[in-house]
Design a protein around this nucleic acid. Sequence first.
DNA 1: CTCCTATCCTGCGAGC
DNA 2: TGCTCGCAGGATAGGA
Length: 268
Amino acid sequence: MPELPEVENVRLTLKNILPTGSRFKRITLNRPDLRFPFPEQLAEKLKGQRLLNIDRRAKYLVFETEKYLLLSHLGMTGSWRELVADEVHDHVVWEFESGPTLVFNDPRRFGFISLHLKSETPSHFVDLGPEPLSSEFYAEYLFAISRKKNTPLKSFLLDQKIVAGLGNIYVCEALFLAGLKPARRAQTLKLVESERLVKAIQNILKQAIRAGGSTIRDYKNADGKSGEFQERFRVYGRDGEKCRTCRKPIKLVRQAGRSTYWCPQCQK
DNA sequence: CTCCTATCCTGCGAGC
DNA sequence: TGCTCGCAGGATAGGA
């Protein structure tokens, strides 16, 4: 479900809901696992810990307590919300000594939770590429790393080791904005195109964050609100419809098992 | 190495 | 209407 802009909105809304310093009182796990088994003794370890901050790296939410970093990946359909009433697929419930109760709901269970001591780098972060909105992500970096990659630009940008946080929607949208064909081999990228691509990625992500993310079907942030960026899609989900720039039809192709939407007229 | 395919799981819309 | 099929915002282990 969620790519960087959606996870960022979940983070921001969770921070609004939960007072800083909230202390975990009771952790309830309604099944033994999600994508992976829950960490050993998760409930016992979290109990009594203060929640100091909620951060984000790539598509991971990072809950920082006094002792731990708890990573929450939302997979395709994971969501956090304030508990009002029980719902199907509520798998994790967090009660605090004061304040609201949080619930993690995930129908497909592709999401997961992992727990790490703060002194250690979470294994999930070791191979991640730079944050696309940071100073670590720039044209020369992308250009250099693309030199030996024969893979299509679409797969190249979906690879979290290249740049972290992009998913199917924002890769399609960024390639359109950059005027680059998704099937182009990464190693054919020119430096000026790499510059355009970096700017397009950053532009799209910033716009999407500001719009509250994109809701295709069921994404909601922790306030229960849907995103609005889907109304501004140029290509994603628009196959057969007219390109908003050139009026020619948007095409749908399948690349590495994923749908790619693009405009053959505008993207070269 | 490098790249692609299949797989995990549930829900929903298209098409018959 | 009801059924089956294919596909969905992700990540990754395996195979070619």
